[in-house]
Design a protein around this nucleic acid. Structure first.
Length: 569
RNA sequence: CGGGGUGUAGCGCAGUGGCUAGCGCGCUACGUUCGGGACGUAGAGGCCGGUGGUUCGAAUCCACUCACCCCGACCA
């Protein structure tokens, strides 16, 4: 490709709206252009890279026994109502009407449609297992798109679905997918963490996320440096150190706490640690108020809470809703409260004689103990893991890192097959629901993550397998006919040798401009033809990440590129 | 949806009521330069986000509205 024929141009300065590295570099290098919030045009350079990523994904999916197909993005809304996911997705689902007023949706994912495909094609255990996948555009009306391709509303996703007769078979498919994912990310130059993840309201036993560690990531990963336990903070569990050695036989006693509203203020006022108090938090779950109790030094994990409540929408209650429920914000506790759903974290048992609200203004109680003084409807882990808490497996201190989720695999179980009636006959003639798994990779996000991981202060440093071109041929001083001739000839040789080459054939740009653009675009190998090199009969060869260039005989440019690519770096 | 911010040339920005709206980059032409973002000369390029108001006069003041960015609740 000749530089002078490219539609895109590089930006001389960083675009001010882009804060994360991949976003900034992709705009600046002319890889993409924004059309609307979370909607981008992919220019040729980006598309070439995306196609390479897709190629890697296809190879690995096919190697794992996958079959590629293509499902529609436009779907009847009815399909989403059948499984109840119209409500689950809520405003994130792009809904529209066709010309006859029929409700339609732009699909955010494809479990419903693929389950119907399998339902009408699979009757027997002999037809299983199946692994089907596609690379296709998804639509999600995200509340807040951000950071370039990290979070967008229209994006290409590789989504795969496995269909198995039983859990043992599902495990095999799941493991095969996990391995395929590891291969894909390694080939894209990404050192990902595989973390235990929340599987969502639909359930299913296992779920893992593949996260690229980076400060600009949206997720928090909890890791144990000792036993390698790795989990998304949404899912992670920890051991909460017990508070105090008391036996819990202290009597309940009221204390006046004028003006004390927060846990921090309460702890200070009474001279007890925050772990010696119980915190009350109020949520609205699908419109119903919920009373949540957790030890004072811990935070509520809303994902865990949502799963415990089996609700679609969960949010903090507003002041008016708290009052309407007859609760006293700042001095509330579950003691003596009824007529509202009560959820508590097991940490309320990891101590005794707690300080809690008295459910009247400016008053608290000391000596509160569960279950002696109050009861709850649901007692389950709803705590957010914090670094420094202890690993549930080995007791070592946990650490937290930020990461971008680039892939996610789920064991779905039989939710969709049961809801939509996808069954098979087993060897004994029984009609059983097919067991499913699903596996997603965001292709554009993977590119963004790769750039996030592989760049320096000068620009992108593309990993070879996903670079738009392998070689960047720079011709300096091309108004000199001899140099132009030599550069053109080398370009021809590279093409003939099958090396994808971007040829900076701009006749009148200064060397600095060309070098800076080459660094910005970050193609793996740079070749320089110039009057100086021509005099010596050589071409300069430099890997993007190399400190210095080496020279090769002018006629051996293609071999030099191959050698440099094989050398890594 | 809550909080903060921005809309003026392809891009980045300046312009606090006065008539022909400016600067840098980029772009076009010619000339000079030529190994890390060169220089000169001459040009092209604007419904100042939109609508409605105030005013003799609005990019500038007021109201409404739309869009985009950043911070929090969603996910590949």
């Amino acid at each position: 490709m000749r530089f002078t024929r490219m539609v895109s141009r590089t930006l001389r300065f960083d675009p001010p709206e882009a804060e994360t590295a991949s976003h900034r570099l992709m705009l600046r290098a002319g890889l993409m252009q924004q059309v609307a919030a979370g909607v981008y045009s992919y220019l040729p350079l980006a598309l070439r890279s995306l196609r390479k990523i897709e190629g890697i994904i296809r190879e690995e999916m096919d190697a794992a026994g996958g079959q590629e197909l293509m499902l529609p993005a436009l779907q009847p809304l009815e399909l989403w109502e059948q499984t109840g996911r119209r409500a689950a997705f809520g405003d994130n689902l792009f809904a529209l009407q066709d010309r006859r007023g029929r409700p339609m949706a732009l699909a955010p994912t494809h479990e419903e449609v693929i389950t119907n495909v399998v339902k009408s094609n699979v009757q027997s255990y002999r037809d299983l297992p199946l692994l089907l996948y596609q690379i296709q555009t998804k639509f999600r009306d995200e509340p807040r798109p951000r950071a370039g391709l990290i979070r967008v509303r229209e994006f290409d996703m590789k989504d795969a679905y496995s269909f198995n007769a039983d859990d043992a078979s599902l495990d095999e498919s799941y493991q095969a997918m996990a391995q395929a994912y590891r291969n894909i990310f390694r080939r894209c130059g990404l050192p990902v963490l595989m973390a235990e993840a929340d599987s969502g309201a639909i359930g299913g036993k296992d779920s893992h996320e593949f996260l690229l560690p980076t400060d600009t990531g949206e997720d928090t990963v909890i890791t144990c440096p000792n036993c390698r336990y790795t989990a998304n903070a949404e899912k992670a569990e920890s051991v909460v150190p017990r508070y105090g050695g008391d036996t819990g036989d202290a009597p309940l006693r009221e204390v006046a706490t004028p003006g004390v509203k927060t846990i921090a203020a309460l702890a200070e006022f009474l001279g007890v640690p925050e772990a010696g108090t119980l915190k009350a938090v109020f949520y609205m779950a699908d419109g119903e108020p919920v009373f949540v109790t957790i030890r004072g030094d811990l935070e509520v994990n809303e994902v865990k809470l949502k799963n415990a409540l089996h609700c679609d929408e969960l949010r903090f209650a507003e002041d008016g809703e708290v009052q309407a429920a007859g609760l006293v914000a700042g001095s509330a506790s579950a003691v003596g409260i009824s007529g509202i759903r009560k959820v508590a974290d097991p940490s309320i048992e990891s101590g005794a004689n707690f300080v809690v609200g008295a459910n009247k203004p400016d008053t608290h109680l000391t000596g509160a103990n569960y279950p002696r003084d109050f009861q709850v409807d649901i007692l389950t882990d709803i705590a957010l893991v914090q670094p420094g808490q202890l690993c549930v497996r080995c007791g070592h201190g946990l650490e937290a890192t930020r990461g971008v989720e680039v892939g996610h695999i789920f064991k779905l179980g039989t939710f969709f097959s049961e809801t939509l009636g996808a069954t098979y006959l087993d060897a004994e003639g029984r009609n059983l629901p097919i067991t499913m798994g699903c596996y997603g990779i965001g292709v554009g996000r993977l590119l963004a993550a790769a750039i996030e991981q592989n760049h320096d202060e000068r620009g992108i440093v593309f990993p070879h397998p996903i670079a738009p071109y392998q070689a960047h041929l720079v011709g300096l001083n091309l108004s000199n006919a001899e140099v132009a001739e030599a550069a053109d000839a080398l370009y021809g040789q590279l093409n003939a040798a099958g090396i994808e080459t971007l040829y900076d054939d701009r006749p009148d740009q200064a060397a600095g401009v060309k070098f800076n653009d080459a660094d910005l675009l970050g193609l793996p190998v740079r070749l320089v033809v110039s009057p100086r090199n021509l005099r010596d009969g050589v071409v300069e060869v430099k890997g993007r990440a190399d400190e210095a260039a080496v020279t090769a005989p002018l006629g051996e440019g293609a071999e030099a590129v191959r050698a440099r690519l094989a050398g890594g770096g």
